[in-house]
């Protein structure tokens, strides 16, 4: 297995931004999906569950982004290539 190429120091922050943005997008999309399903199933297709789901997802992504910038990798699974 080839060694993972070390990221150059000036690219560290860019990598973190990549992870944070993608994570936030995924969580927001998940919240949107849950909101849609919940709206359809339980709330007669009203809009607020969708917004609520998006809010939960985005908030979750933001919180994890904070953790990532502070040195941890909370909520993010790094898969070795």
């Amino acid at each position: 297995m080839s060694a993972v190429k070390k990221t150059a120091s000036e690219q560290l922050l860019n990598d973190k931004w990549d992870v944070v943005i993608s994570n936030t997008l995924v969580k927001t999309a998940l919240g949107f999906g849950f909101g849609v399903v919940t709206s359809v199933l339980f709330f007669k297709r009203r809009a607020f569950p969708v917004w609520l789901g998006i809010g939960f997802g985005a908030g979750r992504g933001y919180a994890e982004g904070d953790a990532i910038f502070r040195g941890g990798d909370a909520g993010v699974r790094i898969v070795n290539p």
């Binding site: 000036e10 922050l13 904070d66 910038f69 502070r70």
Partner: peptide, 22 residues
């Protein structure tokens, strides 16, 4: 010269900053 803009981006980041800080 390549390094300078990167450093400039984080020139105002406080210690232990989150997303908002960056």
């Amino acid at each position: 010269k390549l390094l300078v803009p990167e450093i400039r981006k984080v020139s105002l980041v406080p210690a232990d900053a989150g997303v908002a800080g960056f």
